[in-house]
Design a binder for these strands. Structure first.
Lengths: 112, 112
DNA sequence: AATGATACCTAGAATTTCTATGTATGATCC
DNA sequence: GGATCATACATAGAAATTCTAGGTATCATT
C-alpha cells in the first residue's frame, strides 16, 4: 500500500465504473487499473468487488459487453455503457454531489 | 421528503455523529435532528441506524453517556466524545477528505 | 381524550464490499 | 525449458453498515 490504507468504497463503486466507461469501452481489469491510477492508489478496486458489480450492472441493463482481445492478445470482456447506463450515471453523479456537499456541511467546510 | 430522495449514508454515519458531538454533548435524537437541519434534510438519520451506531461507538470507547433531562424535561442519554473518540474523529475526517478527493478525481472535477 | 413530537430501543432484511480462493494464459527471466 | 509474474476472469462466504418496520413511554397541544 503505497499511499496508506486504501479507502473503502462506501457504495460508490458503480458510479466509478460507469464514469470510467463514459470515456469509452474497457474491460473489467482495465477499469480497475484506470481508477487506481487516476486516484494514485487511494481507491483500490478488489476483484471480489469489481466482477460482482459488473455482473449486477449488466443484469440491470446499465452496461453490456462483448468478448474481445486485449492489446496483448488476451481474452477480455469489453464493457460499454448503454443508454440506460448513461442515465444512471447522471443520476448517481448528481446524488454523489449532493451527498458530498451535505457531508462537507456537517464537517464544517465552507463550500459555498 | 422536502428535498428529493434522501441520500444513503455510505458508511459516514459514525463520522457525522462524532463531528456533531465535537461541538458539545448532545443526546441521540438531538444529534439526528442537528445533522438533518445542517444538511437541509439531504441526509436523514434513521433511528434504526442511529441507535445501533451510538451503541457500537460506546462499546468501542469513542463516546460515553450519562442519563439526564432535556430542556423539555424528558429523560435523555447525553453523549460526549472521549479522548479516543476525538482521535477517531480526526482519523475518519482525514480518511473522508482523501476519499472525497479521490472520487472527485475520477469524476473529473478539477479540485487542485 | 386524542394526537403529535420527543426519546429511547430492537429484530431482521437488504446491500455492498471484502477476504480468500480458483483457473488460465501470455510474457519475461534464468 | 521451466519458473515466475502480470493479466484476466470468476465465485463463495464473511463482514459491516444501513434500512425497514416494528415497539414503548412521556410530554405538550388541541
Amino acid at each position: 500500500m503505497p499511499k496508506g490504507t486504501p479507502e473503502l468504497l462506501k457504495g460508490t463503486l458503480d458510479l466509478l465504473i460507469l464514469k470510467t466507461l463514459d470515456s469509452g469501452p474497457l474491460h473489467g481489469y482495465g477499469i480497475a487499473r484506470s481508477i487506481e491510477t487516476k486516484t494514485e492508489q487511494t481507491l483500490q478496486i478488489e476483484e471480489g468487488s469489481l466482477y460482482p458489480s459488473l455482473y449486477r450492472m449488466t443484469n440491470r441493463g446499465w452496461i453490456e459487453f462483448e468478448w474481445g482481445l486485449s492489446d496483448n492478445s488476451r481474452k477480455i470482456k469489453s464493457y460499454r455503457l448503454t443508454a440506460k447506463g448513461r442515465k444512471r450515471l447522471k443520476l448517481e453523479q448528481a446524488n454523489w454531489d449532493r451527498f458530498a456537499f451535505a457531508v462537507a456541511r456537517v464537517l464544517g467546510e465552507q463550500t459555498a
